[in-house]
Simulated scan of single mutants.
Amino acid sequence: MIDPGLFLTFVAAVTVLMLIPGPNVALITANSIAYGPKYGLLTVAGTSSAMVIQLAFTALGMTELLATAGIWFEGLRWIGVAYLVYLGILQWRAPAIDLTRTRPQPKSPRAIYLRALLVSLTNPKTLLFYGAFFPQFLTTSGDVATQVAILSTTFLVLALLVDGGWALLSGRARGLLAGRGQLRNRISGGLLMGAGTALALLRNK
Rank of each mutant, 00 (worst) to 15 (best):
Y86F: 15
L55S: 14
F155T: 10
Y130H: 15
L60D: 03
A96W: 09
F10P: 01
R180I: 09
A200I: 02
L121K: 04
L87R: 10
L161S: 02
V85H: 00
G181A: 06
S170R: 02
A26T: 11
Q91A: 15
R93H: 08
A56D: 03
Y130D: 14
V85D: 00
P21T: 09
I79N: 03
A116I: 10
M1V: 12
T102H: 15
S152Y: 11
S48T: 15
K38I: 10
S120E: 08
L121V: 10
F133L: 12
A111E: 11
L27H: 08
I53L: 15
T9R: 02
A13I: 03
G171H: 11
T122D: 01
G22K: 14
L41F: 06
A26D: 10
M62V: 01
L114C: 06
P37C: 04
M1R: 13
L201K: 10
K205L: 09
L177E: 06
T122E: 01
D163K: 11
P106T: 14
G61K: 11
L117I: 02
V16I: 09
S108G: 07
L65E: 04
A149N: 05
V44M: 04
A82H: 05
S152N: 08
L6W: 03
S188G: 03
M1L: 07
G179M: 09
W166A: 11
P37S: 15
M18C: 14
S188H: 04
L202Y: 04
S49Y: 05
G88H: 00
